[in-house]
Write a protein that binds this DNA or RNA. Structure first.
Length: 238
DNA sequence: AAGCACGCCAACCGCGGCCTC
DNA sequence: GGAGGCCGCGGTTGGCGTGCT
């Protein structure tokens, strides 16, 4: 048996949203909160499918959205997080307050991809184009320090020992307190498939990396650290 | 001024994962 | 345990705006 359609397509509007539809959606969510997207359109008097409502709210109507151009800092953050996480736009968006996954995805495809290509960097692998290294350390220090589009520094190095999480922030200064990550990408240390972190776990990226809590951090504790650490166990931090 | 090409971005689509029964 | 429902994610599409010829 196939999946039932998410909505009755014959009776739903598609395409651009009108001002009236936006107003209805905003008013409904203000009154009742987010959630129950499937039933929301009917309850709000909208001829839209729930997914469409959710997308419209998350990507456009949410009051905490930051509209406008991306800053250089945001550019570099996106590049860093993409090198860590790949096309996990929602995770990347979670680290950029006021930005949505869709916005970042679009921005990546239209701007940053080209920017990296002009630097001679493969936007998929974050390695220099035409280089087939097997174990390359990616340093963003140069890229972050120089805003004049100089290429990020890539170099071959011997594998490094990952510091024990228990050592992080205990006496030793953190190597990456401001997420100025200096990353070494290598093969996972075992063959088990890496399970993604459950979003419901509610552990932010800073906490998952064992970093000091950021101001926007809403994590209630560090209890999720262990599980989240496992998620990034294939990524070693120097 | 008109036609075309290209870039941008909002929105759609299909799939996978989680949850409930 | 598995079937069905819902939510969220990532890839893709299509319309609009802008610049170029």
């Amino acid at each position: 048996m196939g999946r039932s359609p998410c909505c009755e397509k014959a009776h739903t509007n598609k395409g651009a949203w009108t001002k009236e539809e936006d107003d209805r959606l905003i008013a409904y969510i203000k009154a009742h909160g987010e959630g129950c997207w499937r039933s929301l359109p009917k309850a709000a008097g909208l001829l839209r499918c729930g997914k469409s409502c959710r997308l419209r709210w998350i990507n456009y109507l949410r009051p905490d959205l930051k509209r406008g151009n991306f800053t250089e800092e945001e550019d570099e953050l996106i590049i860093k997080f993409h090198s860590l996480l790949g096309n996990k736009w929602s995770l990347i968006a979670g680290r950029l307050p006021g930005r949505t996954d869709n916005e970042i995805k679009n921005y990546w495809n239209t701007h940053i991809r080209r920017k990296l290509l002009s630097r001679g960097i493969d936007p998929v692998t974050h390695r220099p184009i035409n280089e087939n290294a097997s174990n390359i350390t990616i340093s963003f220090e140069a890229a972050a320090a120089t805003r004049d589009d100089k290429a990020a520094v890539f170099r071959r190095e011997e594998p490094k020992v990952t510091p024990e999480p228990a050592d992080w922030g205990q006496g030793k200064p953190l190597k990456c307190p401001d997420l100025n990550l200096d990353l070494c990408i290598s093969l996972p240390s075992h063959e088990e498939p890496v399970k993604p972190v459950k979003r419901e776990a509610g552990v932010c990226f800073s906490c998952s990396l064992g970093l000091p809590k950021s101001t926007e951090c809403k994590c209630s504790s560090f209890l999720g650290l262990r599980a989240a650490m496992l998620d990034f166990r294939s990524l070693e931090m120097k």
